[in-house]
């Protein structure tokens, strides 16, 4: 672990100031990913800015009937909040599909957005990795890539974003509130994470010195017509190989609105608004789901170990839509897939 200094601001402006003041400064909240990365010598901050005393722990109603989750709301507090559970059961379900109870008690909303990839090469400082050390190469492309991306990859990086929560947030059209040296701004969650291109070291579109203060989830009314279906290598406490967040609104027996985001297959929660739009008005039947899946997965490319994700993702999308339309969301404790 590198040596760093430590500050503990008590206001957002102070935190932003501290963040901008020192190159290499990093924010620490729940620490569940950052401390892990510190121990592997992957994260090498010059300074840690402990934001745990900032007033960002509230879940607030928004004017449109949505909710605004403070950046420091823990995953557990979000998942078990009555308003979240009632208005956004998809979000609650996705959070509960991730990590462990201990981690969910510590991990925060803002931190979840900033989780780094679980690529094995990224985590091992003894091997090359363009995300960890730009320019060193990407052995994952021809190596152990079972858990890596098939969409949105570049020749420099095939990492996935590992979050479950963000997959649901993407489907729910969430908006990220940030404050930086230049003031406040909002970033659509779909624009928050980036594909690697030739800068795989940059996971997201935050500017230097910007701090996530909240994630806003706008009103939606999918009722029971949602699901978070996560497929993984053991039945709990494992990262997704493929996950699907799906929500459907039906009108007179036809699909009125459809939202689908994929996890485990891309450097960001993967959506295709155009493909979703094409399904509006369609009858809710398997053939339509398959056609949608093919469009959402267009351009997907495997790298050997992870070739299976192409077929698996297609089937998972179809099953998730079946669950969502039927109003039988996947349970996160009963491991039978409905």
């Amino acid at each position: 672990m590198i040596r760093f200094d430590y500050v503990r601001p008590t206001s957002v402006p102070d935190a932003v100031k501290a963040l901008a003041a020192k190159p290499g400064a990093q924010v620490i909240a729940g620490g569940t990913n950052l401390v892990d990365l510190l121990k592997y010598d992957v994260a090498k901050p010059s300074r840690l800015i402990d934001i745990n005393r900032l007033p960002l722990r509230a879940i607030e109603d928004t004017a449109d009937g949505g909710l605004k989750l403070g950046a420091l709301v823990t995953n557990a507090d979000a998942a078990y909040d009555v308003r979240v559970a009632q208005r956004f059961p998809l979000l609650a379900s996705a959070i509960l599909a991730g990590a462990s109870a201990q981690l969910r008690n510590a991990a925060t909303t803002g931190g979840n957005l900033l989780q780094r990839t679980r690529c094995l090469y990224f985590y091992d400082p003894h091997v090359p990795c363009n995300k960890r050390e730009p320019g060193t190469g990407c052995p994952a492309r021809t190596g152990v890539n079972r858990n890596l991306a098939v969409l949105g990859t570049s020749e420099h990086c095939i990492a996935t974003h590992p979050s479950d929560m963000c997959v649901a947030l993407a489907a729910l059209n969430a908006v990220v509130h940030v404050t930086g040296p230049a003031g406040e701004r909002q970033i659509a969650l779909s624009d928050f994470h980036r594909v690697p291109g030739d800068r795989p070291d940059l996971d997201n579109t935050l500017e230097r010195g910007e701090l996530i203060t909240a994630v806003e989830v706008p009103f939606s009314d999918f009722g029971r017509h949602y699901t978070y279906l996560k497929l993984r290598d053991r039945l709990s406490y494992a990262f997704a190989l493929v996950s699907v967040a799906a929500a459907v609104r039906l009108d007179a027996g036809r699909i009125d609105e459809l939202r689908v985001a994929l996890g485990g297959v891309a450097p960001k929660p993967w959506r295709n608004l155009e493909a979703e739009g094409l399904l509006a008005g369609a009858a809710p039947e398997r053939r339509a789901y398959e056609a949608f899946a093919d469009r959402l997965l267009a351009g997907a490319q495997g790298f050997g170990d992870n070739d299976f994700k192409l077929g698996l993702a297609r089937r998972a999308i179809v099953r998730a839509l079946t669950q969502a339309v039927a109003g039988t969301p996947q349970s996160q404790s009963d491991k039978r897939v409905a």
Partner: peptide, 10 residues
């Protein structure tokens, strides 16, 4: 009162 992993807390 909340269960957490002590290894990930500074």
């Amino acid at each position: 009162g909340m269960r957490v992993n002590a290894c990930l807390l500074l």
